[in-house]
Amino acid sequence: MTLWDLTQGASAKVSRFKSSIESGYRTRLSELGFHPGEQIACVLSPSMGAPKLYRVNNTVYSLDDSIASLIEVA
């Protein structure tokens, strides 16, 4: 299951990044708080495939499917 599959209101822990992710993006996502073991909540999932809103600590980020589907959660 990936971060993109997380439904609104659900939360999960980041398990790993997919191997296809570029190392630069992986580092950046880690720096923003999306690192393995971190609890992420999907706070809003707008319709029609718009980027979803995820909460990490006290920050909310909007991620589109191209990047959220590269983060595996459990």
Binding site: L29, Y61, S62, I67
Partner: peptide
């Protein structure tokens, strides 16, 4: 290009 990651 850069993926869409935007701080709200």
């Amino acid at each position: 290009d850069l993926p869409f990651v935007l701080e709200m």
